[in-house]
Structures are given as structure tokens and as C-alpha cells.
């Protein structure tokens, strides 16, 4: 019994050290290939500026009534842009996972006595760091152009927790999407719906301004409770049961992504 426990301990430890090794590898790869990180951070920033300065005046008036304007719209849209940062950054996860799979190095890892899952956890933790940096950059731009959240210290801690949870879930999903892609090109397209989904929710305009069918979809798709939770924490708007639904979605997405990823990764390489 004790030998069995020590074997388990040892394999757990190897899973951790191997994951740390793979994380170092992925962080180095990000530094050597910075253009992708820049692109992934740039896109939400462009959307932020576009929506605030081009559409913001008109949309702000629509949201806030007579008193509404660009500043009100900036406060309204920033939580959605932060979420879009996650869905944009995780596209990078799919791309780098798919890149790995097309190169021979993963077959090398498969013929070594290492904790197999570390190949994937290295990507997940690396992407998590990349995504949180991207969010920091986007939030920095938002604050610089006048975003004024009402959140207190406790709210901010909750915001960080919620963002990590959301990023973690979408990263596991993206790992699976990257593994399922036949090529790097395919992997770079497969995450597109994730970037568009915030538009079909309460991210950019309130859902009650939408036509019936779209409104129904917008209210039940996962991004709306995520956005509402984030908006509630940052701006003090009512959250209601959105937080619980958001956590539920994240658990489902993370677990589904994890199980799908490990299944795909452990199937026989036929490429």
C-alpha cells in the first residue's frame, strides 16, 4: 500500500515538474514569436477604440437616454471588450497547439516517459499567463481613455477570479479545438465564433433592443451571464443569478474542453 502511494506521489510530482518544464518552453516560444501576442492583444484594443469613438456617441445615447453619451458607453462596453480579449487570446492557444501537433516534437514527447498531460497543461498555463497580460493591457487602455469602474477592492479580487475562471475554461476548449484542427490555418479560423459571440449577447447593446429570435439566443448563450457578472462587479449593476450561471458555464466548458483535449491527444497519431 505504501509503495503504491509513493508511486502515485512520484507520478504526481513528475506531472507537476513536467508541466513546469513545458510551461517554460511555451513562455519561451511566446517571447520568440511575439507578433502573435501583439496581434491577439491588438484586436480587442482596436474594437474598444472603434466602438467607443466611432459608435460610442450614438450607442451611448441609446443606452443612457438623454444623459447618455460616449463616456457612458465606454463604461457599458468595456466588460464586453475584456471578455473579447479572452476569446481573442485563446485563438492563440488553438494556433500554438495546432503548430505543435504539425511539428515532430510532439511525437518525440509521446515516445518519452513523461507525464503526457504536461504537453497540454504547459499550453494551458502559458496561455493563461498570456491572456491575463492581454487583459491587463486592454484594461490599461480602457482606463486611459476614461473607463471609470465603481468596483472596490473586494470586487476587483472577484473580477480577477472570474476572469481567470473564464480564461481557464475557454483555454481548455481552445486546446481541444487546436487538437481537432487538421492544420494551423484551420486552427486560426476555428476560434472565430468565440470572438463574435459577445456581439450576439448583452456585450455591446442590451438584449431587449434585439428582435425576438436573436434576443432569445442572446439571453441563453454563455457570454451574456459572463458579461453581466463582470459588468456587475466592475460597474455595480445588478448581477442576480448570472454569477451562478456563469460559474456553471465555465465548469461545463472547462471540463468538456479538458476531456475532449485529453481524448484527442491520446488517440493514435495518424498524421
Amino acid at each position: 500500500m505504501s509503495t503504491m502511494t509513493s508511486t502515485v506521489d512520484k507520478s504526481m510530482m513528475y506531472a507537476l515538474t513536467d508541466s513546469a518544464t513545458m510551461l517554460r518552453r511555451n513562455l519561451k516560444r511566446m517571447l520568440r514569436y511575439p507578433s502573435m501576442t501583439v496581434l491577439l492583444i491588438g484586436m480587442p484594443i482596436v474594437f474598444l477604440l472603434l466602438f467607443v469613438y466611432v459608435f460610442g456617441g450614438a450607442l451611448g445615447a441609446g443606452i443612457g437616454g438623454a444623459a447618455g453619451g460616449r463616456a457612458e458607453y465606454l463604461d457599458y462596453v468595456t466588460p464586453a471588450i475584456i471578455l473579447m480579449t479572452i476569446s481573442s487570446a485563446v485563438q492563440g492557444t488553438s494556433i500554438s497547439v495546432a503548430m505543435d501537433m504539425t511539428e515532430g516534437i510532439v511525437d518525440r514527447f509521446r515516445t518519452m516517459a513523461i507525464a503526457r498531460v504536461s504537453v497540454l497543461t504547459g499550453h494551458v498555463v502559458g496561455s493563461l499567463i498570456q491572456t491575463m497580460l492581454a487583459i491587463t493591457a486592454v484594461l490599461g487602455v480602457a482606463l486611459a481613455i476614461g473607463f471609470r469602474p465603481s468596483a472596490g477592492v473586494g470586487d476587483w479580487l472577484a473580477v480577477v477570479g472570474v476572469l481567470v475562471m473564464m480564461a481557464f475554461a475557454f483555454i481548455w476548449l481552445s486546446v481541444a479545438l487546436g487538437l481537432a484542427s487538421k492544420s494551423v490555418e484551420a486552427a486560426s479560423n476555428v476560434g472565430m465564433p468565440l470572438v463574435l459571440l459577445p456581439f450576439l449577447g448583452s456585450g455591446f447593446v442590451p438584449t431587449d433592443s434585439m428582435p425576438m429570435v436573436l434576443r432569445w439566443f442572446a439571453e441563453y448563450q454563455p457570454f451574456t451571464p459572463l458579461i453581466e457578472t463582470l459588468r456587475g462587479l466592475l460597474m455595480g449593476t445588478p448581477i442576480g443569478n448570472n454569477a451562478a450561471i456563469a460559474v456553471g458555464w465555465c465548469v461545463v466548458i472547462a471540463l468538456g474542453g479538458y476531456l475532449w483535449s485529453t481524448k484527442l491527444f491520446n488517440r493514435e497519431s495518424s498524421r
Binding site: 518552453r25 519561451k28 516560444r29 520568440r32 514569436y33 511539428e103 515532430g104 516534437i105 511525437d107
Partner: peptide, 12 residues
């Protein structure tokens, strides 16, 4: 194992 296709990390 040294396979037919290069198994090195090109970015390292």
C-alpha cells in the same frame, strides 16, 4: 527515437 521528420523545437 529520431523520426523521419525533424523533432526539434524550432523556436528554441
Amino acid at each position: 527515437v529520431t523520426g523521419q521528420f525533424s523533432a526539434v523545437d524550432n523556436l528554441l
